[in-house]
Amino acid sequence: MHLFLPIAAKSINILIPFGLGGLVGFLSGMFGVGGGFLMTPLLMLVGIPPTVAAASDSCQIAAASASGTFAHARMGNVDYKLGGLMLVGGIGGGAVGVQVIKLLRQMGNADFLIMVTYVVVLGLIGAYMFVESLSTLRGRVHSEAARRPSRAGRILAALPLQTSFPKSGIRHSIFVPIALCALVGILAAIMGVGGGFIMIPAMVYLLRMPMHVAVGTDLFQILFTATGVTFMQASVNHTVDFILAIVLGLGSTLGAQLGARVAKRLRGEQLRIILSGIVLLVCVKMVYGLVATPTLLLSPKGGH
């Protein structure tokens, strides 16, 4: 059945956005990532204009993260205290990032710099996660050396306003999650997609949160940022296609529920190694996009 999308100005078979939403929602529920990195290019591939794809995607991320947060909250995987602090840092960081990107664009070649930064960041995170989770799966991290606090850990422990986060089982200065999320927010704004792929590894490796709580808490804060972005995109840029977003949202919320259930059956290190595999695949795809001759030398301006 075809539906006409009034803002995208395109007719589409309803099963296509439903299926795409389901796939991306599954990843979202499983790994706590928003899926913007995947959904926007997929929508563009089926002929949705980039600006509409990006904005409608933020609307479906709001729906999927609401569903995912609900599912994780029931399982006790959301650290609200930490999530609230992260939200403060993320919003501040995002605002700084938007200014940085403006500056980069004025300097020229911003898109190229963004793409290369993205590839490098994703490549490093993916490789680190892959090696670490593989080692954990092989049982190599239970040595005494691994249990000793690192130098970075000692520095973090010396910061003022230390507070405990019982849900995550960790203790940090309140400045740590705020600063971390501000940094991720800056990077996310510069790179033009949500920060899930950076945030989850940062929460697991730097804040030492359990993987499942990191996923639930990240979804909790994505819920707020995606809601804000959706409202701005719809009311200021008029680029949210409501019909597209609803169909994507139905698919993605269903997928998110399934993803959260599958995630619960897997161990943290298993989840991390799958996520690292996806991160590395995205990285390879981006490198290919940079090296391969494009089919067309022109593309509509806008979008991610």
């Binding site: 609307c59 479906q60 709001a62 729906a63 999927a64 993260s65 609401a66 569903s67 995912g68 947060t69 609900f70 599912a71 029931r74 809601t227 959706t230 409202f231 701005m232 995109q233 719809a234 009311s235 200021v236 008029h238 949210v240 409501f242 977003a245 609803i246 949202g249 139905l250 919320t253 269903l254 998110a256 529920q257």
Partner: peptide
């Protein structure tokens, strides 16, 4: 339109959760 998009997206998410 912006408010409606947000409310319905969240409602779809929470309803699916329910």
């Amino acid at each position: 339109y912006g408010a409606m998009s947000v409310v319905i997206a969240l409602a779809v998410g929470f309803l699916m959760g329910l």
